[in-house]
Design a protein around this nucleic acid. Sequence first.
DNA 1: TGGAAATATGTAGGCGGCTACATATATGTC
DNA 2: GACATATATGTAGCCGCCTACATATTTCCA
Lengths: 161, 161
Amino acid sequence: MMGDYTREAGGAAIGARLRRLSAAFDGDVARVYAALGISFEQRWYGVLNQIVLRGPTTVGDLATALRITHVSVSQTRQSLEKAGLVVTQSDDGDARRKRLVLTPAGQALVDRLTPLWRAFADAALALDAEAEGLAVALDRMDDALARRSLFDRIMDRAKAP
Amino acid sequence: MMGDYTREAGGAAIGARLRRLSAAFDGDVARVYAALGISFEQRWYGVLNQIVLRGPTTVGDLATALRITHVSVSQTRQSLEKAGLVVTQSDDGDARRKRLVLTPAGQALVDRLTPLWRAFADAALALDAEAEGLAVALDRMDDALARRSLFDRIMDRAKAP
DNA sequence: TGGAAATATGTAGGCGGCTACATATATGTC
DNA sequence: GACATATATGTAGCCGCCTACATATTTCCA
């Protein structure tokens, strides 16, 4: 069921495989932007995509939607502002919240990259189909970890010395 | 087949899921060491494990076995040397190669942590069983990427404008 | 109404990888 | 035997994300 590498790598195997695979994805996506001469940071995508889908959105809501920390979103926001793609609106009546809004330049970039992003999505869907069952297996892993975290599972076993 | 998040996240979904999952694994493993009061860098594991399995080993062979770059191994080696767990032997008759050898302190740490690493491996195997088919699906993804890289797949689709 | 607690965001520093480039040694070929 | 090329390792600097902690604002309740 599991290859030689898994046995050799011990308990680190699954984590290492997932890390390697996600890094491979990231690398190839970065190479696409580079090959097309587009200056684009990958971490921008999630935030821009959410703003397109939902309109002006706060840091916290973006973090929730993207399932990353607000800190990462905050850093991405700074980067997007520096690049002139997004501005911040102190909005609402709640002065703690900041809404991220596309600038005209941001909208133009989104319009320009939308066909490319569709190509990404198509390629990812095709890959997912070829790696039949990957998404479902990832769902099952999420469920298993929700039932009992890896931390707890290890500590259970580490108790008996 | 794929959840709402996938649709919302677009093409970044699989990559993001893999990244998040591997980070979750890393985080929980780090928490285990912390909870047990053990000062241990995770990236040490792969190198130490390989040295235990194969005896003194070179940077390049470790990189191949662990499927990471020689640069990462080189950095890990520095860290292991600074921690006094490993020393370098300029060996062979080929003065380019450096073999990494466990120090007594390194061997003692390995002996001490071996039961914990077994707990890691057991927990990972149990998780893999619960997330039935994950390892196999990852194999299929590796195969699919070997047939044609994500880069090529995207560029194929990006050509037609 | 005046804090205490909750919520939203930001800063500092770290992690395990990576690419691009540099250096040292070995090998093969004319 | 000299020199081009291949191989082994190292350095600099980056990436996307993280935790721990700090700050600003709002809300709740005695």
